[in-house]
């Protein structure tokens, strides 16, 4: 959460769009990349990111640190994350409230955590360690959840508030994850938003999801493979009207569309941000 974070919408930097972006230099506020895709020695990933970084602010989003692993974060991974952060100087570094590594095996999913005091102590310790190594505060993202554990002791929003206070981290509020989890865990997304510790939010994510199964008992799945849903746009409008502009990412990671389609989604988020900014200017 540095002072020069762009209060605009951004897009994921996808190999499908690399050449177009470098050649046409679209008017996009910033790009986000997954840190793990830039941990190789060289080649096209670094070639294109270096050139994109020269043109745009970059946000670094990690998916492999496994901050919630009881057996410790992914060994050696924090040092690799720091190397990428040092090389590309992102305006923000973020990770997930999740775990993905167990006994050295990487499961390639953002797995859920039981919201208990013991989990909170563990995650706070790991976030503090990450921030110490990286030399900066990071943002932690609220997860998409599909299930609940026996014996949970607090709501997700209370867990995140306590985590931010204890560790000094900021929060990345993924509104699609709110919509997905709200259906899957039967809570009201508006209540979630109203109880979320919004004072810690440094970035917002928007994305699309899939609906699995019948109408009677659907599960929503966080797929990032389609346009942002109307419910997510509704929550976004409400959030930004209340908080004012925040860096906002449109995530579209599989079935990646042609650039103009993604660009139009980003422009839509930008128009919400602009309206909120103008509203604030009038009120001032």
């Amino acid at each position: 959460m540095t002072a020069d974070r762009p209060l605009r919408a951004g897009a994921g930097l996808k190999p499908e769009h690399h050449r177009h972006i470098l050649e046409s230099r679209p008017d996009i506020g910033w790009f986000e990349v997954h840190a793990e895709n830039y941990m190789g020695a060289g080649g096209p990933p670094h070639f294109f990111l270096e050139r994109a970084r020269a043109l745009y602010p970059i946000s670094l989003h990690g998916v492999g640190l496994s901050i919630g692993s009881a057996g410790g974060m992914t060994p050696g991974h924090l040092a690799r994350l720091k190397k990428v952060a040092d090389r590309y100087d992102p305006f923000v570094v973020s990770e997930h409230l999740a775990w993905s590594t167990h006994e050295g095996v990487f499961l390639n999913d953002l797995l859920p955590l039981p919201y208990t005091e013991a989990t909170l102590a563990l995650v706070s310790r790991h976030v503090e360690e990450a921030q110490t190594v990286l030399g900066r505060p990071i943002l932690i993202e609220n997860p998409s959840t599909y299930l609940r554990f026996e014996g949970e002791e607090m709501a997700e929003t209370d867990f995140l508030r306590a985590l931010a206070r204890r560790s000094g981290c900021g929060l990345l509020l993924d509104l699609n994850n709110v919509v997905v989890s709200a259906v899957n865990r039967s809570f009201d997304p508006l209540t979630y938003l109203d109880t979320f510790p919004v004072e810690h939010v440094g970035e917002v994510h928007l994305a699309g999801h899939a609906v699995l199964g019948d109408i009677e008992a659907p599960l929503l799945v966080d797929t990032h493979d389609r346009p942002v849903s109307p419910e997510v746009w509704g929550l976004y409008h409400r959030l930004i009207t209340r908080l004012g502009p925040l860096p906002t990412l449109v995530e579209w990671d599989s079935n990646v569309p042609a650039w103009p389609i993604l660009e139009a989604e980003v422009a839509r988020a930008d128009s919400v941000l602009r309206a909120a900014g103008e509203g604030r200017a009038r009120a001032a």
């Binding site: 009881a70 775990w99 167990h102 095996v105 026996e150 039967s186 599960l219």
Partner: peptide, 28 residues
């Protein structure tokens, strides 16, 4: 937590294993 994650991780990779007991019964 480490016991929960142990059974969770094993059951993820092996379809013949049952869903971990820590996963709660819910409506829906």
């Amino acid at each position: 937590l480490d016991a929960t994650q142990q059974t969770f991780a094993h059951a993820l990779l092996r379809p013949e294993l049952q869903v971990p007991v820590a996963v709660a019964e819910m409506v829906g």
